[in-house]
Design a protein around this nucleic acid. Structure first.
Length: 560
RNA sequence: UGACCCAUGGUGUAAUUGGCAACACAGCAGAUUUUGGUUCUGUUAUUCUAGGUUCGAGUCCUAGUGGGUCAACCA
């Protein structure tokens, strides 16, 4: 069978296929993912990772992991570890060992001297303030630095002095000699090197001058032979700088291509703001399940496959976008529906006494683990005279379309019997304490000859055999889809105080025992959950990943 | 008083590169259902504006409008 529709290509794929057709780089494709090791990876990085790795894979190429570690003041080894873990968890493996921009410090230094020798770079003694003021504005050209006209020899000597630690931090910089009147401000003699007498996480005290992004990134691409250097739109103004160095240095011509970063409703990715959430304890850490970090989403129970599907479905283009959280959750549900084992958990238990079930006896019922996957097998569920059901699954005075337990009506217990509700007992405040029902002995699941067809089916657990567990219910971190929309209101004002609700007294069927954290379950009729790392064999803790689609809730209580 | 990027249903992305505007998610309606889940069927809704080129424009040209980005010794 052949696809009738021609596969549509995104704009980067079109560029690559054109390059391939022209025999560029002999058909070799090499991309790279270049994180700065100064923070945790988030949903936006996931998209960048997906694009770089999937594109290379599609065209028979490879992808490098390169840490852009040119700023010793902010970068730490801790992040190097977490970033690698996150990428691998997402399902990708880079070519060979991880690479570092710092591996190229020696080569970069030589490049700088070459530029100086060609009269294309100079040492500037101006203060940061002076450099800023001479830079001009977007609408006014800058003015030349008084040091711009230094001789090649003097520049070489001074630059070597910078490298040898002869000058204090911030006293001098090396700048490219381009054009202070360029309409693109990045072309107004960008700074190449600054003096920082700081310990670097990999090169230690070998260097006291460190290259800036513009003099490290493109050159690193070139050194590695990256064919397609894919980055987000905000780097578009850097492309002329990127190309200028390649041309003047006469090095391998990597090509920078910019795509629009992915934004998602209710998520923020600003490092500063995420840090605030962590530091000021709005969340429990970088891996709090409410965080948009990969570690947070992983702990929340989002499968890597769902994230990959999400990246694929959101596409690659150049216009600003905000993806509905809907789509993400749809991808997560779709994946988990196929893979998650079903389990019965009652979050807000209320006891049901089945009055015609013989006292002191019990039986074992069989329950399929996943109706979407018979190979997942079956498990045993004990059943007896007393069970728990969800408090909200009982109403004394129910509207006509209420298909759950209500006096005088029948309801099915999943994998068990049909119950006829007789009534309930209440305490002095009118709170229902116990529900009474009778069961139809001939209505057992799988061998039901009762002929009764109740509208509703409930989840339940045996009152005596079930165990108590903790369930953490997560909701969106913010009360509005775009907490940054109003520049006059700090995003923290939109923090959702109800984003975490902890249930301490949930009842879980005895067959579900402590296994690896991240094991996924679908709690019947409630949603998808996974075992949290805080669990032990004595105390199970679950995180809510995402709820089931709930068309009933929408019908009875339409929320704005 | 600048440069650059972008503009297609509610959201996102397509349109064989100038030839019937479609796919997914969301919405709505229905069928099925021992999960008010899943699945299935149907359905609502789209080319920023004004000119121009053309037999024909979402696509090309011009102007405008709207949105975004750029002035760290950050990346």
């Amino acid at each position: 069978m052949q696809d009738e529709r021609k596969e549509s290509l995104n704009f980067i794929e079109q560029i690559i296929e054109t390059d391939l057709a022209n025999g560029k780089h002999s058909g070799r494709i090499l991309t790279r993912f270049p994180p700065e090791p100064n923070g945790y990876l988030h949903i936006g990085h996931a998209k960048a990772i997906w694009i770089n790795f999937e594109l290379a894979k599609k065209y028979g190429g490879k992808t490098n992991l390169r840490f852009d570690d040119t700023n010793p003041t902010t970068e730490e080894t801790e992040y190097v570890e977490s970033i690698q873990k996150d990428i691998q968890w997402l399902g990708y493996q880079w070519q060979n060992e991880p690479l570092y921009a710092s591996d190229y410090f020696g080569q970069l230094y030589e490049y700088a001297k070459k530029l100086i020798s060609k009269g294309l770079a100079y040492v500037d003694d101006s203060t940061p303030e002076e450099i800023a003021s001479m830079k001009g504005t977007p609408t006014e050209p800058g003015v030349d630095s008084p040091y711009k006209s230094r001789s090649v020899e003097e520049n070489l000597t001074l630059f070597e002095g910078m490298k040898n630690g002869e000058f204090p931090d911030g006293s001098r910089v090396l700048r490219a000699n381009i054009d202070m009147a360029a309409p693109n401000m990045l072309m107004r003699d960008p700074i190449l090197y600054r003096i920082k007498k700081e310990n670097h996480h990999r090169t230690g005290d070998d260097w006291c001058i460190y290259p800036m992004y513009d003099f490290a990134h493109g050159q690193s691409d070139s050194i590695e032979g990256i064919t397609h250097s894919l980055c987000s739109l905000e780097f578009i103004h850097h492309r002329p700088v990127y190309d200028w160095f390649i041309e003047k240095l006469e090095i391998f011509p990597s090509r920078q291509i910019e795509f629009a970063r992915m934004n998602v409703e209710y998520m923020i990715t600003s490092k500063r703001r995420l840090l605030k959430l962590v530091n000021e304890k709005y969340v429990t850490g970088w891996d709090d399940p409410r965080m948009p970090t990969l570690s947070g989403m992983r702990r929340k129970g989002y499968p890597a496959a769902a994230l990959r599907t999400f990246c694929e479905k959101t596409g690659v283009a150049k216009r600003d976008n905000t993806i509905e959280i809907n789509l993400l959750e749809s991808c997560v549900r779709d994946e988990l529906n196929k893979t998650a084992l079903r389990a019965m958990v009652v979050l807000d238990p209320i006891k049901v006494v089945i009055t015609n079930y013989p006292e002191g006896t019990s039986e074992i019922l069989m329950a399929e683990n996943n109706p979407e996957d018979v190979s997942a097998g079956e498990r045993q569920m004990p059943f007896s005279r007393e069970i728990y059901i969800e408090r909200e699954d009982f109403m004394e005075d129910a509207p006509p379309k209420y298909f759950r337990m209500t006096p005088g009506k029948d309801v099915r217990l999943k994998h068990a019997y049909i119950l006829h509700c007789e009534g309930c007992e209440k305490d002095e405040f009118g709170l229902v304490t116990t529900i009474y029902a009778t069961y139809y002995p001939n209505s057992k699941s799988g061998s039901d000859v009762s002929g009764i067809k109740p509208k509703g089916t409930l989840h339940w657990v045996d009152a005596h055999a079930s165990r108590t567990c903790e369930v953490r219910l997560y909701d969106r971190l913010f009360t509005v889809s775009d907490p940054l929309a109003d520049e006059n209101t700090d995003f923290i004002n939109f923090y959702n105080k109800d984003s975490l609700q902890t249930v301490h007294n949930a009842k879980i069927e005895p067959g579900i025992v402590f296994t690896d954290p991240l094991t996924h379950y679908q709690f019947f009729r409630l949603g998808y959950f996974c075992i949290d790392q805080d669990s032990s064999s004595e105390a199970l803790v679950f995180n809510k990943t995402v709820g089931l689609k709930d068309t009933f809730a929408k019908e009875v209580k339409p929320t704005p």
